[in-house]
């Protein structure tokens, strides 16, 4: 019965030949990497608008609205100041422990939030994915951009804390933007990669809090990782601890903002690691996500 549709367009043509004759393309075919990147670029306004919308939506039911964007890191810092600064009086051999702690915490939060957002970037937006056509990489990228906005307001708070605790304003502060940029690329790659994994394995969402907590303890947020290396005999393991990307980004920003913060590796080594991780995870995550492009609607 269905053959009649072919018969009137010219006998002897198969469906595929008919498609080729009129220049039709296969539905849902994955574009080449270059074409995909171009598509993504033309959707940059959507990514920005979507990230903004997400920030707005997260505060839409709160009476104070976007003020929470600054209040959240401020409250966070206050809690840690209360416990570690006032009650415990922790120093850990670090001159300015409160500033040291806050840098670690805020930088860690940037990656942690991008990771937990990335896992759900595709699986949590199936409705949007099944309704409209756009390069799916927009979603995890928007997650990263949303968290980047949160980081910026956290950085304002951080600069206040660092200055109030008596750190001088130096030329080294200029190293903060490139460090954050590298971390953002790293986070984007991570969010992309995890978005594809999370789209297939919905259990991942439940596992992530544990993975993230382990990562936090391993990244010297609350204390220096020198404590680890004292207890590890194997030099390979020590190198592994030092190459931890999150540790690298935290150390770089500490190095830039704080005068006498102890470093686990020399600064040039840290920068090398930072660039390496950003490139590896950024590009790797992007390609990995692109390869699954046609599958995301399946859920």
């Amino acid at each position: 019965m269905a053959n009649t549709a072919v018969a009137d367009t010219g006998p002897g043509l198969s469906q595929a030949q008919l498609a080729a004759r009129y220049g039709l393309s296969v539905a849902g075919k994955r574009p080449t990497l270059a074409a995909y990147t171009r598509q993504l670029w033309s959707y940059r306004h959507f990514i920005a608008a979507y990230a903004n919308a997400k920030v707005l939506a997260s505060y839409s039911t709160a009476r104070l609205g976007r003020i929470w964007q600054v209040l959240t890191p401020l409250t966070n810092a206050a809690v840690y100041y209360l416990i570690f600064g006032v009650i415990l009086g922790t120093r850990n051999g670090v001159p300015n422990f409160i500033a040291y702690l806050c840098v670690g915490l805020f930088v860690y939060n940037f990656t942690s939030a991008a990771v937990s957002g990335g896992v759900q970037a595709v699986s949590g937006q199936l409705g949007l994915i099944r309704a409209l056509h756009f390069p799916r990489a927009c979603l995890p990228l928007a997650v990263t951009l949303t968290q980047f906005q949160h980081l910026l307001s956290a950085m304002v708070v951080l600069v206040g804390i660092v200055l109030v605790t008596g750190e001088p304003l130096t030329v080294e502060w200029l190293l903060v933007p490139p460090a954050i940029l590298l971390q953002s690329i790293f986070n984007a790659g991570l969010a992309l990669g995890l978005a594809r994994l999370g789209a297939k394995m919905t259990d991942l969402k439940q596992l992530m809090p544990f993975v993230l907590r382990t990562w936090m303890y391993g990244s010297g947020v609350l204390y220096s990782v020198d404590k680890f290396t004292e207890n590890l005999d194997n030099p390979i393991l020590v190198n592994l601890v030092h190459a931890n990307p999150l540790l690298v980004y935290i150390e770089l920003i500490r190095h830039a903002l704080l005068e006498d913060s102890p470093l686990t590796s020399a600064a040039p080594t840290l920068w090398l690691y930072a660039v390496g991780w950003a490139l590896l995870v950024g590009v790797g995550g992007y390609i990995y996500f692109w390869r699954g492009e046609q599958e995301y609607g399946r859920g």
Partner: peptide, 9 residues
């Protein structure tokens, strides 16, 4: 419909 839309392989 979803297949035609390219959403389902």
């Amino acid at each position: 419909l979803r297949t035609i839309a390219g959403l389902l392989p």
